[in-house]
Design a protein around this nucleic acid. Structure first.
Lengths: 333, 333
DNA sequence: GTGAAAGCGCTAACAC
DNA sequence: GTGTTAGCGCTTTCAC
């Protein structure tokens, strides 16, 4: 602050009695420096509390070692965990992380991306953006860009990292069938991985020669609640419900209990995301887990690889989901 | 990327046939520019897709318009929401947000703060840091620093923003007493606001001439579960339980149901944080809300104010919690 | 191995 | 109102 001025490379050079370039080399652990002088510089730097100014370094290197992460919804616990994974891998590679959110509004998201670009970020990571194709293509032209969580949004030189939602949609079916269930319903959702999960569910049901029972819902508590109510009021009640995500599953749980039924005695329930919610003992929801840390790792890898080879074709990276069994599923009563 | 080089202020100046400084003024909406030339510059910039290089600007202005936010645990839904509030207010003031996490390890946190300082951030916002006094004082000496969520960590020129946990601890008691409860237990926790909440609880109980019943737990599901089990197995069962946070309340809920009792018929239950969990209909937990958006707003305000007047004494900003009533509390059966 | 000099893209004085 | 000049603090040729 006002009090003490931040020391510069020049101050250190004078103090150590060497040139600025030598200090620069030492601060970056360059190999070709004699041990005596290196130590001299290090001592001087330590005494002065010198820290290289990253802004100046970024300017001259024309790279900031920063990635811009755009998240459409920070409240979503799933995203929070992906961010955590992202942070881990950026940190490992010595990258910093700039965070922005567009609140699901394409105009705001564009604005955030613009500011990332102005900042000269090394890469852009977009978590389930609400973005349109054009905006994405524009960004991808300027900087390594990767979309996470949507595989319907493509652009040249823009990489994608997704969980294999189709495989994920099949897992609950296989699990429930193995337990003995035959009437397995799905509460579906549009957007993000919803349709893919549904496709996976339907394919798996067909594979087991069972009839699909699909109800349109959404990714919310409310959507799951309404969906389950509709299912329970129908003529032939399902013995198991697979909801599009954990939150919808909890909504379904509420409806099931309100109907005087219990989980898993009367109805088995499966969610998706293996979020915080699913892990709470009181809920203990069987759920499909997306490996978040790996998603983060792959996204950062995509950015760094594209920096090195900007013109390789856009690549889709997929991670495999797996089922985590908990107390909400059991053989049919 | 490699393909198109990013245009600079010079390119725009040539294209528009004016000087660099004029372009600079226009890009920052300076008032004293004639409309004709302003438009000329704007057109040239648009044609070239020019965007001022923020890194260069930061270097010369000696400020980055960036705040570094250190969060000890991104998984914690409470923090995620504070970050959201923080983002809102930084965004409003044209600040960008750099995010880092130290995973509750003081050494890692220090490292993150070091990198923020090297980056020349305008301010530091630390969410419940695991930091020690010394490290904090060091940071606060260099840049406006504010600690959020801990009031036991002070340093000169370092501001603090906390929820008034003591007041928050009293709210559930008043609410429960109003409903007719007299045997109200508290599951306490050490760390963060735990002790203050407990003090608030104890003071309120005393005020109502009731005996405190406190059980040491922690901020986890498990802690709440064990705490509630102990309370339920005691000779005189409480008619209401106030847990140190929502997660512990959910743990207590599990224990209560396992004991064959129900909420709120047999036991009323109150949590703290009014998190995502409390709002899920299936849980519908009465809980003490900390105004997260306001916390974020105050933290950013603290940073900007201290930038202007670095030497004002450290200031503690407090926000008032309030109780959100839901289905988990009712008059004693 | 080490130092001198140039310049990254921008803003801020200062002239006109 | 507008243009010119001098840096911001660093890395990077390029000599030595």
């Amino acid at each position: 602050m006002a009090a003490t001025k931040r020391p510069t490379i020049e101050t250190v050079a004078e103090r150590a009695g060497v040139s600025k370039s030598l200090v620069s080399l030492v601060m970056r652990n360059a190999p070709n420096v004699s041990d005596t002088r290196r130590q001299k510089v290090l001592d001087a730097a330590a005494e002065l509390g010198y820290r290289p100014n990253l802004v100046a370094r970024s300017l001259v290197e024309r790279r900031t070692r920063t990635v811009g992460v755009l998240v459409n919804d920070l409240h979503n616990p799933f995203h929070a965990e992906v961010i955590d994974g992202l942070y881990e891998s950026t940190h490992e590679r010595g990258l910093r992380m700039l965070l922005g959110t567009g609140r699901r509004d394409p105009a705001q998201e564009t604005e955030v991306v613009e500011s990332f670009l102005a900042e000269d970020v090394d890469g852009l990571i977009l978590l389930s953006p609400a973005f349109d194709q054009r905006a994405l293509a524009g960004a991808a032209k300027q900087v390594p860009t990767v979309v996470v969580g949507r595989d319907d949004l493509r652009a040249p030189r823009c990489d994608t990292v997704v969980n294999d939602d189709e495989a994920g949609g099949a897992l609950p079916v296989d699990h429930l069938v193995a337990l003995g269930h035959r009437r397995i319903a799905h509460i579906a959702a549009a957007g993000a991985g919803g349709p893919r999960r549904r496709e996976g569910y339907e394919a798996a049901m067909a594979r087991h020669a069972l009839d699909s029972i699909v109800l349109e819902g959404d990714f919310t508590d409310e959507g799951g609640y309404e969906g389950a109510r509709a299912l329970l009021s129908g003529s032939r009640r399902p013995s198991a419900i697979f909801a599009c995500n954990d939150l919808a599953a909890i909504g379904a749980l509420t409806a099931i209990e309100e109907a005087g039924l219990s989980v898993p005695a009367d109805i088995s329930l499966v969610g998706y995301d293996n979020s915080y919610l699913a892990r709470v003992r009181h809920i203990s929801l069987t759920s499909v887990d997306q490996p978040r840390a790996e998603i983060g790792r792959l996204a950062v890898e995509a950015v760094t690889e594209r920096r090195e080879r900007p013109d390789t074709p856009a690549r889709l990276r997929t991670v495999a989901p797996h089922l985590v069994e908990r107390a909400s599923t059991a053989p049919p009563g």
